[in-house]
């Protein structure tokens, strides 16, 4: 589904160039749940931004369903984002002035879905994510976990094929984090959502099928969960992080 080929990303001026991504390549299959891990400054968010077309790559190609998104004109990029990508951010990014229902419906309105179908579709997805009873509320009236579920609903309501999550549990307590990760797993397993999640939390990464490790902008390692229990996979992730070095404090 997603193919990242030798992408590079440089920041800065002529005299002071920072290499944020260095020849990163990987593939994501349809229906996969992938986590990208790494320390602060390792390039995880840059990678996510490049895939989500918020940022552009300096070299290399990103193909989604065979379409090279690094070469799309800006107008097409906007269309691509609203039709194909769903976003879940660490700080929820819900609009304060809209109710939960409207925040979710916004994604449909942007896709020019006939207005009379919006409520129906929002209601369907809210039912699946167990947030039907808070649809009338404003973001400041609900908990962090509920906000994140609303963000998940917005990310998939318009039938987006790839869900990009940037530290989705970063602002949640452990109970709400667990709840959210289960929701993501459910979305992946039952609704067929392909998920690419950036995190520096080993516990969150343990829910993925595969974990990619980034260090200094390069792919350092890759772990496949296979049939192993989540607990075992979690410990393997911790081992790799220990190998990466200097990041134990991030994991514990």
């Amino acid at each position: 589904m997603l193919e990242v080929k030798n992408i590079e990303k440089y920041y800065g001026s002529k005299n002071n160039v920072t290499k944020a991504l260095d020849r990163v390549s990987f593939q994501v299959a349809d229906g996969e749940f992938i986590a990208i891990m790494g320390a602060s400054g390792s390039g995880k968010t840059t990678l996510l931004n490049c895939i989500s077309t918020i940022d552009t790559v300096s070299a290399g190609d990103i193909l989604l369903d065979g379409e090279n998104i690094s070469q799309l004109p800006s107008r097409e990029l906007a269309r691509f984002r609203r039709e194909r990508l769903g976003f879940v951010f660490q700080d929820f990014n819900l609009l304060d002035t809209l109710t939960v229902e409207e925040n979710i419906g916004l994604a449909l309105a942007l896709n020019h879905i006939p207005p009379h179908k919006v409520q129906e579709q929002v209601s369907a997805v809210a039912g699946k994510l167990e947030i039907k009873d808070i649809l009338e509320k404003f973001p400041y009236q609900i908990s962090g976990g509920q906000k994140q579920r609303a963000a998940c609903a917005r990310a998939m309501v318009a039938g987006q094929s790839l869900l990009l999550a940037d530290e989705p549990t970063g602002a949640l307590d452990s109970k709400a984090s667990k709840n959210l990760l289960e929701i993501l797993t459910k979305m992946n397993r039952d609704m067929g959502a392909t998920i690419l999640m950036v995190t520096h939390d080993a516990y969150s990464a343990g829910y993925a099928h595969r974990v990619l490790f980034l260090k200094d902008g390069r792919l350092f390692n890759e772990l496949l969960r296979g049939d192993r229990a989540r607990q075992i996979f979690y410990h393997e992730i911790l081992d790799v992080l220990a190998l990466l070095g200097g990041d134990i404090s991030d994991v514990l």
Binding site: S52, I54, A78, R79, R81, N93
Partner: peptide, 9 residues
């Protein structure tokens, strides 16, 4: 946010 959600300029 709207830009990320795909609203064009």
């Amino acid at each position: 946010l709207l830009e990320k959600l795909g609203m064009d300029r």
